[in-house]
Design a protein around this nucleic acid. Structure first.
Lengths: 148, 148
DNA sequence: ATTTGTGCAAATCGTTTGCATCTGA
DNA sequence: TCAGATGCAAACGATTTGCACAAAT
């Protein structure tokens, strides 16, 4: 007991299933097996930065049966529902961030690593008034790092 | 007089050719016909944000014979030489910015437009010390806009 | 039962590369 | 002359899409 079989995937505890089910429901998404499993991988351990490809590999090696296309779809749905946030730093790959709060990023250009910077730490002053008919959606600060 | 034929392209004045030739030489690049033409398109009128695809179209409709592959190569060479700067905002396309000085950007998410924000205007305070062995290469601020 | 999600494989898009051919110094 | 630049077309990798099938309410 305490472990329920989700399809063929037995890595989620009863608690986790309930928590994620509720999280998905609140976001207006049906708690399917794949979404539950992906949510578990994404949200179980703190803040993460993942690519679709990366999450797919993780899922597969955790024994979750899910296609790469579904991972892409799911991550976009999660993003649209506010469960994830897209981070664009590199052009060649899209990162998804499980931290949807106010924060910024270090981006290590040498190895493609992302590290959060708390929103409280950085202050951006002097943002000009947006052009006519537009309003500020978000301000992203990316601190690009290179090897010393 | 005043207009020299560059291959089949007669849109560059003698002055422009000389100016761009020198600019390329200083950057350590041989002033070929294509590079001269692209430099002219890029640098003739103030600060610009261009995609490779966009610049290629411009070149073609200006009567410049150049392939898309060469435009890509050239823009990367210009970037490596400090004549251009790459701006990553969208993931699906790479923008090149003729403004290589200290500045930031408005990004209009609805139509993909970029607008410069002067470096003096914005101040970023509180950037944490970079992780071990890394140093700050650059700080990018992207103000994402949406329609009001 | 009806709506919504999933998987697969093919299509797409921007970008890069290999290589034979030109061209500027 | 001859390193360096160009063009073309093919290769590429990440992402998206169309559609038949499966699962959730």
């Amino acid at each position: 007991m305490g472990v329920q079989i989700v399809g063929k995937d037995l890595f989620m505890g009863q608690r986790a299933i309930q928590a994620n089910t509720e999280k998905l429901r609140k976001a207006g998404l049906r708690p399917t097996r794949q979404r539950l499993a992906l949510a578990q991988l994404l949200f179980a351990r703190g803040d993460r930065h993942v690519t679709a490809e990366g999450l797919h590999e993780e899922a597969v090696s955790a024994g979750v049966q899910v296609s790469l296309a579904t991972v892409y779809n799911t991550m976009h749905q999660f993003t649209a529902s506010g469960l994830l946030r897209e981070v664009t730093v590199d052009g060649t790959r899209t990162y998804f961030d499980t931290n949807t709060g106010d924060h910024h990023h270090f981006y290590c250009q040498d190895d493609g690593t992302l590290v959060d910077i708390d929103g409280d730490q950085i202050e951006v002053a002097g943002v000009p008034v947006p052009p006519h008919g537009a309003k500020v959606d978000r301000v992203d600060v990316i601190v690009r790092l290179k090897r010393r």
